[in-house]
Amino acid sequence: MADTTATATPETTTTEDGIRRRDFLDIAAVSAAGIGGLAVVYPLVSQMAPSKDVLAASSTEVDISAIEPGQAIKAVFRKQPLFVKRLTPAEIEAANATATGSLRDPQSLADRTKEGHEDILVTMGVCTHLGCVPLGAAEGEVKGEFGGYFCPCHGSHYDTAGRIRKGPAPTNLEVPEYEFTSDTVIQVG
């Protein structure tokens, strides 16, 4: 085997079989590089998801004993405002008087509160339109046309049960997962 090819024209010297073997090897090697490259993407994407400390800090306890009827407090849940409101009998009545079927996001007050605690309304203080904080939780703030919350950014009106009644918001104020750990303490998240 003294053949030495001096120029770079492998196509002319490889046999039919050789070409196939070469193609297979090249494709395998390039595919392996591609798989490796894709594998690298996973941690690079994953690192931007919430880190362990952020996920662990996603539960909050709120003491509701000091809330008078008609008052609300603002707490913080997942770095976002949380409204906890004790409804007056009149507000409960107003909420129940509304026909559920006519609403944009049909839910009754009972759907949005815990059994035995229908006067405690727990919602995120985040407008479902574009995320502003609605007014109405603090003393003296505008409560909107329906006596609940009003978002000043784009004029969404929520009723006493925190349901969307007028304006661009698509859904009711979100009720996060929570439970009563005692009669006066709720744990959110």
Binding site: M1, A2, D3, T4, T5, A6, T7, A8, T9, P10, T13, T14, R21, R22, L25, D26, A28, A29, A32, A33, I35, G36, A39
Partner: peptide, 24 residues
């Protein structure tokens, strides 16, 4: 995986260079 990929890369490199390498 890297070992596997490196062996493949070596075989592929050898195959490609066989066309111009002087043979013994």
């Amino acid at each position: 995986f890297l070992l596997f990929a490196t062996v493949l890369a070596y075989m592929s490199k050898k195959q490609i260079w066989s066309a111009v390498k002087p043979k013994k």
